[in-house]
Amino acid sequence: MPTDLHLLSPTSSGRRRNGTREFARRGTESIVDIDGLRVTSLEDTLIDIARREPILTALVMTDAALLVDRSGVRSARCTAEELDAKAADFRGQPGTRMIDAVLRRATTLAESPLESLSRWRFEQVGCPAPVLQHTVRLASGRDAHLDFAWPELGIWGEADGAAKYLGLSQAGATGMTAAQVVIAEKRREDEIRGLTGWRCIRWGWDDAWDVQRFRTLLVRAGLPLDRRAPPGMRQFARVRAT
């Protein structure tokens, strides 16, 4: 948990004292009112996080803001174009490369923090880039959206957070018990496999947090990995839990 209170300095100088961090004012910040509190805009905040915090922290937050909800329950909180425009305010300042690294990787298709973490791990272990939210039309006429798919390899992947099986996500939305969710997911997997002939690989938080464990899981599933870290990857290797 954060231990400091982060504030925007009233001047162009920043300082840190008594558990408070004041960040230098640039003069281009957008200030909004939320429930009576004056705060920096979402776009300002995300870009500042990208330049100061580990890439995984920033990527998870940016993905969540950009998410386009398939169900239409909510719209994206901001757009990639808005973030690009705000990033232009930081050109020439420290952290520009980190901002670019986050914005290059961010997507509107990550439906959970685990999916964001998984994409970062794919890159770290040299896994081929998957298709995100690949659509398969089931015999029932419904569409199944696969978290990750490698159609040319005949493999798809599902990032399974505990919420799905503890009744906090799908079960909460449908009134199904956790056991019913598990059974429904198994039937869905069987139907997808029957239609596509693809192999399914599943992982949870514990798998994704452990790089070696995740690499082993992918190799056993038949995914070809390049053990050489992509250019520039090592400089972004520091990861902090969000």
Rank of each mutant, 00 (worst) to 15 (best):
E158H: 07
G154L: 02
D190A: 12
I201R: 07
A144C: 09
W120D: 04
W198P: 00
E111W: 15
F148K: 08
A149W: 14
I183C: 08
L217V: 00
R97H: 12
R104H: 06
Q180A: 12
P151I: 00
R104G: 01
A159L: 05
I155V: 13
Q124Y: 06
V211Q: 09
F214S: 02
W205K: 06
E158K: 15
T108E: 07
T216A: 13
E185V: 08
L132K: 05
R142F: 09
F148L: 09
E191N: 01
T135L: 13
G167T: 11
A184C: 05
G172K: 02
K164W: 15
R104V: 07
T135S: 11
G175I: 06
D207V: 15
K186P: 00
E111P: 04
R215V: 00
R121Q: 14
Q212V: 15
R199D: 06
G161D: 04
T174A: 06
P130Q: 02
D160T: 09
T177L: 08
A144T: 13
A159K: 11
W150R: 10
R188P: 01
G194C: 12
R137L: 05
R121V: 00
T107Y: 08
L217H: 05
W120L: 11
A208E: 04
E152G: 12
A171R: 02
W156Y: 13
K186W: 03
E123K: 14
A101C: 02
I192E: 03
I183V: 15
G175Y: 00
I192D: 02
A110Y: 14
P151Q: 11
F122V: 06
T216R: 14
G167N: 04
P151F: 15
T107L: 09
L218N: 05
G175C: 06
